[in-house]
């Protein structure tokens, strides 16, 4: 497999909210960005990391990487796609 290169433009922390607000907060942060920009989304292990990546994919954005921060949180790297 080929890993993708990226440069983070903005980040959002959704570890302070629970589902379904997790996804809503990430979605709002993505709306602030321009097409092609990269957002880092920090989320908790469990429900958020099981579900938020998929919700973002279903919104049409491109997921590049999920990083394990080894502290019970993960950071999802997302490239914004269109509107």
């Amino acid at each position: 497999m080929a890993e993708l290169e990226y440069q983070i433009d903005d980040s959002v922390d959704i570890t302070d909210v629970v589902c379904p607000t997790t996804f809503v907060k990430a979605k709002v942060a993505l709306e602030e960005l321009d097409d092609g920009q990269i957002l880092a989304v920090k989320m908790n292990d469990g429900e958020p990391v099981q579900n938020v990546p998929r919700s973002i994919k279903e919104e049409g954005h491109q997921i590049l990487k999920l990083l394990d921060n080894k502290d019970g949180t993960f950071t999802l790297i997302v490239k914004k796609v269109g509107d």
Binding site: A2, L4, Q50, N51, P53, R54, L64, K65, L67, L76
Partner: peptide, 9 residues
């Protein structure tokens, strides 16, 4: 692309 999402999903 080795993103790692599936392992957690």
């Amino acid at each position: 692309i080795g993103c790692g999402v599936c392992e957690k999903a």
